[in-house]
Design a protein around this nucleic acid. Structure first.
Lengths: 297, 297
DNA sequence: TTCGAGTTAAACGAAATTGCAGAAATTCGT
DNA sequence: ACGAATTTCTGCAATTTCGTTTAACTCGAA
């Protein structure tokens, strides 16, 4: 090969430009200046021999090649971030930042009290929550620990099953007064239903286990678990939510518990290389005990 | 945070020092000088606040913390390498380097003719073989394409089952003349057997499917498939090898085909992000057709 | 149209990084 | 025991890289 390997820093610049679609914006994000970013991109294009962005006055548009190379740069970045986290947490005591991946509803309604208790026990701990229904890749180090409702199948993971959560149909009392109480599964067709917009792994698992679920029409569709949860609470209609969660709300009533009672597993997963890391170990154990306590209520 | 994020280049230097156990050797490996490497390590230790290496005159010994952080740096490096590979192969035609992971026996005995044919069709292709029984992690980009004899379970992989390979007991004619032909499975106890030293996934899968395999004692043990294969060819004794492979050797005879006939699947796996990459696409398809042709013989 | 906010691109001086040599110390082999 | 060969460290010069500034351009709103 003629030219030497490119500076690894160039990849960071490449990624920033790819995200911001502009040299100036990328420079602001990296605390650099626009000319340096321009030089970095030039250097990469020079080293690889093809264009990465088509320049224009209103920004830079990535080429096919740039999009092709983006995933590599992203995992590189994820690993630098993970490296920083473990570096800040090295030592005998548990301190540093732990990045936790969970669904929105779990992260917003269940995790906070558990994490608060952990924080009291280990004041050096800090938390980053990545809340989405798209499962993050633990092997890519997008997160340190994941709380999932589907069984993790990847290798090289420490997995612990915590138990099962029950999902049930719920509605606000006011809605029941207004629209009546469904007496059977077929009655649901005449109600205001709250459901999902796009398919997620959790939903696919659910659909396959509830007969007749395909025929239902949702009047309120949202990707966000939280939005659905709020919709149920505000009396929009009937939706699916965790039984343990709904029980804490005095104004919610469960509907058709005998017909609809879906049980999903709850798993905790962590990369096995993090097992010896104090901060991750502490959070893993803390989450395990805290979440099983929640499940038992 | 007080300090800025460290230069990504420092990670490369860190990795080199970790491997070479010496600043000077690392400098030679990276085409840098020893003082710069020293400064890089200093910078990292400064940024993280703890020592990475204990200095001595006969080199640098990594601390626990350094070993803890090593895996991150390694996946970063793996991704930069993969990035370079795809960058060099971007374009309409299939060219560039493809890194293939396979078992030793497959890589040494089966792949070469298939790759030679591929090379004739696409003169721009170059190949890197990673031959080991420890399966590489495709998600970490240790390899582009993997030929495996256990079913890949990781997500985000393009997997194609090519067929099955038959494993059978074989020995050289001369050995049979010398030691006789075993007439039953129990006769094997009185023969010179060739087998594995340590456990590998393929072996575990095999053991569980061959009754009585635990009782056998191997007089020739080697991790290397090749070494076993050579031992069988040289008349050491009786060993397990692929039926299709042994059939090409005139001096090998198959033993107890009715008692011992193990069929293993053969899979081809690739990261799904590489599907659109011409060079990987071409090699994946080429391997698929070439290997199925081998299986059908 | 005209002004303002946004962008990229080029030139020059400053700052940071790197390489080069020399010195000191240690291990290995004779 | 003594010299040869590796190490790592320390200053100083050279190179590379970065930031500042200026110019040219596009788009949208007043």
């Amino acid at each position: 090969m003629s030219a030497a390997e490119p500076d690894w820093n160039l990849y960071r610049s490449f990624l920033a430009v790819l995200r911001e679609r502009s040299l100036s914006a990328a420079a602001r994000a990296l605390n650099l200046t626009q000319p340096t970013l321009a030089r970095h991109i030039d250097a990469l294009e020079d080293a690889w021999g093809f264009e990465l962005f088509t320049r224009s006055q209103q920004g830079l548009a990535p080429t096919e090649a740039a999009l092709e190379l983006a995933p590599y740069a992203e995992t590189i970045e994820a690993n630098t971030a993970a490296m920083l986290r473990t570096a800040s947490g090295l030592g005998a005591v548990a301190k540093g930042t732990v990045r936790i991946s969970a669904s929105e509803i779990v992260g917003a309604e269940i995790l906070p009290p558990v994490l608060a208790e952990l924080r009291q026990r280990y004041p050096g701990l800090e938390f980053e929550l990545v809340l989405s229904n798209a499962i993050d890749n633990l092997l890519r180090r997008d997160a340190d620990i994941a709380v999932r409702m589907v069984e993790p199948t990847q290798e090289a993971l420490v997995v612990r099953k915590l138990g099962t959560v029950s999902l049930g149909l719920h509605a606000h009392k006011d809605y029941i007064v207004r629209a009546g109480k469904p007496a059977s599964f077929n009655d649901l067709a005449h109600h205001s239903l709250i459901g999902f917009d796009r398919e997620t792994p959790a939903i696919r698992a659910m659909r396959s286990r509830v007969p007749g679920a395909e025929t239902l029409h949702f009047a309120f569709r949202a990707d966000s678990d939280i939005a659905q949860w709020r919709a149920v609470q505000s009396g929009f209609g009937i939706g699916i939510c965790q039984v343990g969660l709904a029980r804490r709300e005095l104004n919610l009533v469960r509907l058709l518990p005998d017909v609809f009672d879906l049980k999903l597993g709850l798993w905790l997963a962590m990369h096995e290389n993090l097992r010896a890391t104090p901060r991750c170990r502490a959070v893993f154990d803390g989450l395990a005990s805290g979440l099983t306590k929640y499940l038992s209520v």
